[in-house]
C-alpha cells in the first residue's frame, strides 16, 4: 500500500459532504451516518495508493462510501436496531414539539421504506435522492448502463411512494 500525499488527502476531504449525504441516506440516524462517513474515508486513505486514475477520484470515493454503507446495512439486518434510533436529536430542534413529532414520524416511515427496498433499488435511490448524483455518475459508480440505472430508480421511487401512501 502506498501512502497518498497531502494533496490527495485534501482533495478527498473536499468530498466529505457528498459522502456524508450518501451515508445519511443509507443509515438510520446522524450518528451512524457520521461513523460510516469516517469509515469510508479511512478506507479511502488506506487504498489511495492503489488509485490508477486520479481524475476519477470522486467516483472512486463514492464507490467506497456505497460499499461501506451496504456492508453496514448487512450487519444491521443481522442485528436490527430499535426504531427509536431513527428519531433525530429533538433537543436542538427549533420546531414545536407537535411539528417535530410529525416530521420525525414521517422520517421514520421513509427510513423504513428505504430499508425495505431491494438492495439494487435502494442503492440507486439513495445515491440519487440523497447523494444528488447525476445519471452519468450513478452509472459510473454502480458500473451500470444509464438505462439500467433509470429503470431501477423508477421502480424504487414507485415503491417508496406506495409505502408512504399506505401508511
Amino acid at each position: 500500500m502506498t501512502a497518498p500525499d497531502d494533496g490527495r488527502f485534501r482533495e478527498l476531504i473536499g468530498y466529505k459532504e457528498d459522502v456524508f449525504r450518501i451515508c445519511l441516506g443509507f443509515s438510520r440516524n446522524f450518528a451512524d451516518a457520521e461513523d460510516l462517513c469516517q469509515d469510508a474515508f479511512l478506507k479511502a486513505f488506506a487504498r489511495a495508493g492503489d488509485l490508477r486514475q486520479p481524475g476519477s477520484l470522486r467516483i472512486w470515493l463514492l464507490r467506497i462510501a456505497r460499499t461501506t454503507c451496504l456492508d453496514h446495512s448487512r450487519r444491521m439486518r443481522r442485528n436490527p436496531v430499535d426504531l427509536a434510533d431513527v428519531v433525530p436529536d429533538t433537543a436542538a430542534d427549533p420546531r414545536t414539539p407537535e411539528i417535530a413529532s410529525e416530521v420525525n414520524e414521517s422520517l421514520r416511515r421513509l427510513k423504513d421504506a428505504v430499508q425495505s427496498l431491494p438492495k439494487k433499488q435502494r442503492e440507486v435511490f439513495v445515491l440519487r435522492e440523497y447523494g444528488g448524483l447525476s445519471y452519468e455518475d450513478l452509472a459510473r459508480v454502480l458500473k451500470l448502463r444509464p438505462g439500467t440505472v433509470m429503470s431501477r430508480l423508477s421502480r424504487a421511487r414507485r415503491a417508496i411512494a406506495a409505502a408512504m401512501k399506505e401508511e
Binding site: 466529505k16 459532504e17 456524508f20 449525504r21 445519511l24 441516506g25 446522524f30 451516518a33 457520521e34 462517513c37 433525530p88 416530521v103 414521517s106 422520517l107 421513509l110 435522492e129 440523497y130 417508496i160 411512494a161 408512504m164
Partner: peptide
Amino acid sequence: VRLIIQRETEDGLRRF
C-alpha cells in the same frame, strides 16, 4: 417525500 429527504439532509449537514 422530497421535502422529508431535503429536511433530513439539511439538518444532517448542519450538524456535520
